[in-house]
C-alpha cells in the first residue's frame, strides 16, 4: 500500500513561544499510509507540532519536513498544504458562511477535490447546504470540518483531537469515516487524541509526547509486545529488586507483592526475576494506557 518514505519527519525540533518551550527536541517519523496516533497530556506539544508542520508557527530550531518539503519556508509550506488537510481542535469555521458556502469556498482551492465524496458525506453526515455555520452544534461542526478535510484529495490528514466533544456514537462515526477513507484512498492520517482506546482501535503507529519530546514511538504492535507487566508474589516480604536487563523498568513493591512494568522485550528480564525465587510469577499483557501513564508520569 505504501512506500517506506516518511511522510512527516522532524529532527531535533524546538519551538519556543515567548518564555514557554512547547517543543524541546522532537524527533518524529510518520510512515506513509499509516494511521499514526499522537498522544500526550494537555500542553505536551501536540497542537504545536501540527502548527509547525503546516507552517502556522515557525520552528525555533531544528527541522520539520512533510513530503520532503521544509515546513519552515513559505513557498514549500504552501506546497505542503496543497497536499494536506487539517482539522483543528476547536473546529472553528467561518460563522458568517453557510454550509454550502464554505464547501464551495474550500473546494475552490483544491483542484483534486472529490465531488463524489462531497455528496456522500453531505448525505452521511446529514448536512444541509443552507444552514448557517453560526448555529451549528459542536458535533455538526466537527462533521462539517471532517467533510472539508476528507474531500480535498489530500495525501495526509492532520487531525487535532478529531473526536473531542463528541458523544460515543458520533465518535465512532468519525472513526469509521477515517478508517474508510484510509482503506479506500490510501492517505496517511496523523491524529492527536486523549482517547487511548480509540488510538488502540485504529492506529498502527503511535508516539507519546511529553514536555515537548517524543518519549515513546513506533509501531503499536511492536510497542505492545515490547512492554510486559510482571507480577511477583513472595512467601515473605518482597526483597529489593534491581533489574539489570536493558530497558525501562518500573518496580513497585508492596508487602509481598512486586509489580514490574518492563520495556525490555523477552526473556532476559524474566530470567533475572525468576532468580529472586518468587512463589508466584505471572506475566500479563500491557495496554496502551499502561504504557502512556508510565511514560508520562514524572520520575519517582
Amino acid at each position: 500500500m505504501a512506500s517506506n518514505r516518511a511522510v512527516i519527519e522532524t529532527a531535533g525540533l524546538w519551538k519556543r513561544y515567548d518564555d514557554v518551550e512547547a517543543l524541546r527536541g522532537l524527533d518524529l517519523q510518520v510512515p506513509s499510509g499509516s494511521i499514526f496516533g499522537f498522544l500526550g497530556k494537555n500542553g505536551a506539544g501536540k497542537t504545536t507540532t501540527m502548527k509547525v508542520l503546516l507552517g502556522m508557527s515557525r520552528p525555533t530550531r531544528g527541522d520539520a519536513h512533510v513530503f520532503g518539503h521544509s515546513s519552515a519556508e513559505s513557498n514549500s509550506s504552501v506546497e505542503i498544504r496543497r497536499r494536506c488537510a487539517f482539522v483543528s481542535d476547536e473546529k472553528d469555521l467561518y460563522d458568517y458562511m453557510t454550509v454550502g458556502e464554505i464547501v464551495a469556498f474550500t473546494r475552490s482551492f483544491y483542484p483534486r477535490w472529490r465531488g463524489d465524496l462531497e455528496q456522500q458525506y453531505l448525505h452521511k453526515f446529514d448536512l444541509q447546504l443552507s444552514r448557517n455555520i453560526k448555529g451549528l452544534s459542536r458535533g455538526t461542526r466537527t462533521k462539517l470540518a471532517m467533510l472539508l478535510a476528507l474531500c480535498r484529495g489530500a495525501e495526509l490528514l492532520l487531525l487535532d483531537e478529531p473526536t473531542s466533544g463528541l458523544d460515543p456514537a458520533m465518535a465512532e462515526d468519525m472513526l469509521q469515516a477515517l478508517v474508510t477513507h484510509v482503506s479506500r484512498e490510501g492517505s496517511t492520517v496523523f491524529f492527536s487524541s486523549h482517547q487511548l482506546s480509540e488510538v488502540e482501535q485504529i492506529a498502527d503507529h503511535v508516539a507519546i509526547i511529553d514536555q515537548g519530546q517524543a518519549i515513546v514511538a513506533g509501531a503499536l504492535d511492536d510497542l505492545r509486545s515490547q512492554y510486559q507487566r510482571i507480577h511477583l508474589v513472595f512467601e515473605n516480604d518482597a526483597p529489593e529488586i534491581k533489574v539489570r536487563a536493558p530497558g525501562t523498568h518500573r518496580v513497585r513493591r508492596q508487602g509481598r507483592v512486586v509489580t514490574i512494568l518492563s520495556s525490555s522485550r523477552g526473556d532476559a528480564v524474566i530470567e533475572e526475576l525468576r532468580g529472586y525465587k518468587p512463589a508466584t510469577f505471572e506475566v500479563s499483557p500491557v495496554t496502551l494506557k499502561d504504557i502512556f501513564l508510565e511514560s508520562v508520569r514524572t520520575e519517582d
Partner: peptide, 18 residues
C-alpha cells in the same frame, strides 16, 4: 474482504491484514 471488514469493525485495515 479486508477493506470492507475494516470499515465495518472500525479497525485499521493493516490490523486485519496482519
Amino acid at each position: 474482504s479486508i477493506r470492507p471488514l475494516a470499515e465495518e469493525l472500525v479497525v485499521n485495515p493493516n490490523t486485519i491484514a496482519k
